[in-house]
Computed example of a mutant assay.
Amino acid sequence: MTTVAPDTGVGPLLRAWRERRRLSQLELALRAESSARHISFVETGRSRPSEEMVLKLAEHLDVPVRDRNALLLAAGYAPRFAETPMDDPALEALREGMERLLHGYEPYPALVVDGTYTVVAANRGIAMLLDGLPEHLLTPPLNAMRITLHPEGLAPRIRNLREWRGHLLDQMERQMALVRSETLRKLYDEVAAYPVPEPGGDAAGREDREDEAPYPYFALPLRIEHGGVVLSFVSSISTFNTPLDVTVAELAIETFLPADPATVKYLQSLTS
């Protein structure tokens, strides 16, 4: 057993992750096939965990891949997971696969974002929705949250803006509970401060009217105007299983499924 100074190294970080996940030392020990005494010794710095134990605890604490590297460094070990740039030749197969997926989903919108909602790739369905937005919002790097909620972005076109905005902010809050990112926190503070049109405002910012015919949606839809037509989508988010690279671990593919027959018909008419 290696003894290290208390309140330094990996122990306080592991304790913070355990408390964030609301687990007791005993619960974590049972999951990691260890003992509460050993977990306590690790957290207080009385013992130094092995590299395998750091990774095992990180797995059971659902620590993001980027932060697993930080835990390893704090414990005195080399990072295990690479962070490969998206334009690196090593990720060529990944890029091509995502492009085929996005293209195959057309005419319906789909895009890929990283851990701070920067757009990595998008298809023509997304380009259709962004048509007419100001240049400053479309200058790379594009940010999906900023484009959606900015008062000069898609927000004035979204018919159920309050509901959709609440959904997006909740999504960001859940992500911030899982990862530690100052960039994500600053983005959240920025988009949460954007003004929201009052109900009953002008046509560009109004909410859905009560006299509009209801449709039995199976999930909260994004209801957005395009060319004078209200389109309805529900979104689905996919991530990669067991990623071994920080970049890949933080990618998310969001697809927008038409939520009613009118939206399907409209989008298919554009391609025909």
Score class of each variant (00 low, 15 high):
residue 119 V to I: 15
residue 150 H to K: 00
residue 53 M to I: 11
residue 191 V to Q: 07
residue 83 E to R: 14
residue 181 S to T: 05
residue 19 E to Y: 08
residue 19 E to P: 02
residue 17 W to G: 10
residue 136 H to P: 14
residue 78 A to C: 06
residue 225 E to W: 15
residue 168 L to H: 07
residue 84 T to M: 12
residue 96 E to V: 06
residue 89 P to S: 06
residue 90 A to Q: 09
residue 187 L to F: 02
residue 72 L to M: 05
residue 226 H to I: 08
residue 188 Y to F: 15
residue 4 V to A: 15
residue 110 A to Y: 08
residue 234 V to M: 12
residue 244 L to S: 13
residue 2 T to N: 14
residue 220 L to A: 01
residue 25 Q to I: 00
residue 244 L to N: 10
residue 139 T to C: 07
residue 3 T to S: 02
residue 205 G to V: 08
residue 29 A to D: 00
residue 243 P to A: 09
residue 198 E to I: 03
residue 10 V to R: 14
residue 22 R to G: 03
residue 201 G to L: 12
residue 87 D to W: 02
residue 36 A to Q: 14
residue 84 T to R: 06
residue 259 A to G: 12
residue 153 G to R: 11
residue 204 A to L: 12
residue 81 F to I: 06
residue 165 R to S: 05
residue 238 S to R: 08
residue 29 A to T: 07
residue 241 N to M: 10
residue 22 R to D: 10
residue 11 G to Y: 07
residue 132 G to K: 02
residue 40 S to A: 11
residue 220 L to K: 00
residue 7 D to Q: 11
residue 228 G to N: 12
residue 170 D to T: 11
residue 250 E to V: 03
residue 3 T to E: 15
residue 255 T to M: 13
residue 267 L to W: 08
residue 263 T to P: 11
residue 129 L to R: 10
residue 235 S to E: 09
residue 269 S to G: 03
residue 3 T to D: 05
residue 28 L to H: 05
residue 176 M to Q: 15
residue 20 R to T: 05
residue 244 L to K: 13
residue 77 Y to Q: 01
residue 43 E to N: 14
residue 65 V to P: 04
residue 141 P to V: 14
residue 34 S to F: 00
residue 190 E to A: 11
residue 214 P to A: 11
residue 20 R to Q: 01
residue 119 V to M: 13
residue 93 A to P: 02
residue 48 R to Y: 02
residue 89 P to M: 07
residue 153 G to W: 04
residue 157 R to W: 13
residue 253 I to T: 14
residue 5 A to M: 05
residue 44 T to Y: 00
residue 32 A to N: 02
residue 55 L to N: 03
residue 204 A to K: 12
residue 131 D to Q: 12
residue 183 T to P: 04
residue 210 E to I: 14
residue 58 A to Y: 05
residue 137 L to S: 04
residue 234 V to R: 02
residue 189 D to R: 10
residue 15 R to D: 01
residue 102 L to R: 03
residue 148 T to V: 09
residue 59 E to R: 12
residue 156 P to H: 08
residue 207 E to G: 15
residue 15 R to G: 00
residue 19 E to F: 11
residue 47 S to L: 14
residue 219 A to K: 08
residue 257 L to I: 11
residue 55 L to A: 01
residue 57 L to K: 01
residue 84 T to C: 13
residue 101 L to R: 00
residue 62 D to C: 06
residue 94 L to G: 04
residue 121 A to G: 13
residue 191 V to H: 08
residue 241 N to R: 14
residue 194 Y to R: 05
residue 27 E to S: 09
residue 252 A to V: 07
residue 17 W to P: 05
residue 118 T to I: 11
residue 217 Y to H: 07
residue 257 L to K: 04
